[in-house]
Write a protein that binds this DNA or RNA. Structure first.
Ligand SMILES: [Zn+2]
Ligand SMILES: [Zn+2]
Ligand SMILES: [Zn+2]
Ligand SMILES: [Zn+2]
Lengths: 132, 132
DNA sequence: TAACAGTATGTAATAATATAACATTTATAA
DNA sequence: TTATAAATGTTATATTATTACATACTGTTA
C-alpha cells in the first residue's frame, strides 16, 4: 500500500508538469515552464524535485540530469530503479521487471557492503529508432 | 585482448592522476591538480576525460559526477559497468562479477529495445562505515 | 617529401546544473 | 495555544560542462 503524501503547492505544480510531459524533464526546463505559476527561482524547483525524489513520485535519470515521473505505482521510494534510455531519440522508460528487481535487490558480494539502494540505466535503441 | 591505446600527453597526465588517486575524482579537482603540469582550462580536462571514458580506461560515476580508473582489466569500453558506492564515506569500487554482468548483458524485455550498454550503481554502507 | 586527414591542443567566453545563506510563512500536532 | 517541522521566497554564488575558433601534432598515402 502506497503511503499518500499530500504534496505542497510547489511540489504539486512541478509533479503535474513532469507527469503530464510523459518523459524526462530537466530542472531549468521545468523552471521555465512554471514561471507563469509563480515559481521563479531554481531553488524552488530543486527543493520540490528533492522531495518528490525522496517520496518516490519521480526519479532522477542520472546520466541525463533529468527527472521523470514514476511509472511504477508501487515505487514508494527511489531505492530500486531501472530505466531504458534510447540514445537516439532520448526516450526514457522505467523498467518494472520483478525478476530483475528481485535479482538486484538480493545482490550481494564478498565486499562486505550492505546494499540498500540501486539505480540501473540501460542504453540502446528503441524500436522506432532501430528501424530507421 | 585489450587494445593498446597510446594516450596523448594530456590524456596520460589525467589518467595517471585519477589512477593514482585510487578513487573517484571530480573534473575541477583534476583541473586543480594538473595546473602545475600546464593544463589550465576545463575543456582540456573534459576532452581527456571524454576520450578516456570512450576507450574504457576510466568510467564516470554518474550519480557523483566523478571519474574513476577502471579496476577491471578486461573493460575495453565503458559499456557494461557496475559500481558500489558507500553513502557515508563515498568510497567507490567497480564490481566485477561475471554472473551479474552476464545477467545484465543478456537482459531483454518486451519493449523492443535493443540494449547495448548499461550502468549500474549500488548504494549502501561499506564494511567500515557499517560498524561505526 | 608533400599533401592530407584525423586527432589533439590552447584559449576565452559562456551555458547548464546545483547549492548556500537567510528571512518568512504555512501546516501539523501535542 | 504553542511548539515544531516543513515549505516557501529571494539573492547570490558554486559547480559542472560546452561552444567557438585558432593552431599544432601524428600517421598515412601520393
Ligand atoms: Zn518508479
Ligand atoms: Zn529512439
Ligand atoms: Zn571497468
Ligand atoms: Zn564507507
Amino acid at each position: 500500500m502506497q503511503k499518500e503524501h499530500n504534496l505542497s503547492k510547489n511540489q504539486k505544480i512541478i509533479f503535474d508538469l513532469i507527469d503530464k510531459s510523459g518523459g524526462p524533464m530537466k530542472a531549468y526546463s521545468i523552471l521555465f515552464n512554471v514561471q507563469k505559476k509563480g515559481i521563479k527561482a531554481p531553488l524552488q524547483v530543486y527543493r520540490a524535485l528533492d522531495k518528490l525524489v525522496e517520496i518516490g513520485k519521480i526519479h532522477k535519470i542520472e546520466s541525463r540530469n533529468a527527472f521523470i515521473a514514476c511509472q511504477n505505482s508501487s515505487c514508494q521510494v527511489s531505492k530500486a530503479t531501472a530505466f531504458s534510455i534510447c540514445e537516439s531519440c532520448e526516450n526514457v522508460s522505467e523498467i518494472s521487471n520483478s525478476k530483475l528487481s528481485k535479482y538486484l535487490s538480493n545482490f550481494s558480494d564478498s565486499s562486505g557492503m550492505k546494499y540498500s539502494k540501486y539505480n540501473l540505466e540501460f542504453f540502446g535503441l528503441c524500436k522506432k529508432c532501430k528501424s530507421k
